[in-house]
């Protein structure tokens, strides 16, 4: 039998050769096309937003968009398209969310990275993952049917739709993100630095705040910036619990509207294709996209600098 396999392989080779040659040439091409789809997606998003936004601005003046303080697109006789109320609503929600998420997220990160034993960490981290995996519509439901009534007990004048409740819940939703990204940043601080400080008699708390936090600061900031971006883009929680009244206000007890919830409102309504209202969602979407894009780029910039440190 010696040599027979060799011969068999040789025979097969001659037959296979041309086919396998083609396959080896075609496959990388197909895979490249797959890779290009993600680029096309980005281009698709950018072009869609740009083209439809331009159409929008051919019907509504850019100056009005950026200077008017009113957003009343549904006034048929005299609609107003001033983006600021939607931006202020968005930022109000984001601000409340950060007031909740940063302390609780960072606190959890410090606890997990500096105090917790391995066993505790192994229990808590999956719980945070579960929290991060809950669909936002569920959080929206929770905001409307639980958090708002609870808040109404404290603030009796609080209307059903308000900024506070969804703001808090968006914050809760974001806690796992800040906690896990910040914890990553803190755990990557070399243990030698920690032990050095502990050896000098510093308490765990002093090590955490005076040594680890500063060393991991850029990573932590990056996580917060990413979280802000998430909060800005969050849709369902604010749609369900925040109301639909675009208002230039900082009063957290009032009903507001965010950029995202405006887009949903239009898509649920009967604004037909080709109307100014239809195009307005692209202008708002473009504004939203730019906000989040800038945040993401900032976060990437910060964390790239951070990575060079070690």
């Amino acid at each position: 039998m010696q040599g027979s396999i060799r011969q068999m392989i040789k025979d097969k080779k001659e037959k296979q050769q041309s086919r396998s040659k083609i396959v080896e040439k075609i496959v990388p091409g197909i895979l490249l096309i797959c890779a290009i789809i993600s680029v096309l997606t980005t281009l698709g998003i950018v072009f869609t937003l740009i083209v439809e936004t331009i159409t929008f601005f051919s019907q509504v003046s850019v100056i009005e968009y950026f200077t008017s303080k009113d957003w009343y697109p549904f006034f048929e006789s005299d609609p107003d398209y001033g983006i600021w109320p939607l931006i202020s609503g968005t930022l109000l929600i984001t601000g409340i969310a950060m007031l909740v998420a940063v302390p609780f997220g960072l606190g959890a990160a410090i606890y997990l990275s500096e105090y917790a034993t391995d066993r505790v960490r192994r229990i808590i981290k999956p719980i945070l993952e579960v929290l991060a995996g809950i669909p936002t519509i569920v959080y929206g439901f929770f905001a409307l049917t639980f958090v708002t009534p609870v808040l109404q007990n404290v603030i009796p004048s609080l209307p059903v739709f308000n900024a506070l409740s969804p703001g808090i819940v968006v914050g809760i939703m974001i806690i796992p993100m800040i906690a896990s990204l910040s914890e990553d940043a803190m755990s990557s601080v070399p243990n030698a630095i920690r032990e050095g400080a502990l050896g000098l008699g510093a308490t765990r708390f002093e090590v955490a705040v005076k040594v680890v936090l500063p060393a991991a600061l850029s990573g932590i900031i990056a996580s917060v910036v990413l979280a802000i971006s998430r909060a800005i883009g969050e849709t369902m929680i604010v749609t369900v619990a925040g109301g639909a009244t675009p208002k230039l206000t900082l009063d957290v007890t009032e009903s507001i509207q965010t950029m995202t919830s405006y887009i949903v409102q239009v898509s649920l309504g009967d604004a037909g294709f080709g109307t100014t209202i239809y195009y307005s969602i692209y202008a708002v979407g473009m504004t939203l996209f730019l906000f989040t894009l800038i945040m993401n780029l900032v976060a990437q910039y910060i964390s790239r600098r951070f990575r060079e440190e070690y």
Partner: peptide, 14 residues
């Protein structure tokens, strides 16, 4: 053997 095109189960067993 398989990547070089031999698929016959009996031959492969051998």
């Amino acid at each position: 053997p398989k990547i070089h095109g031999i698929k016959n189960k009996k031959i492969l067993d051998e």
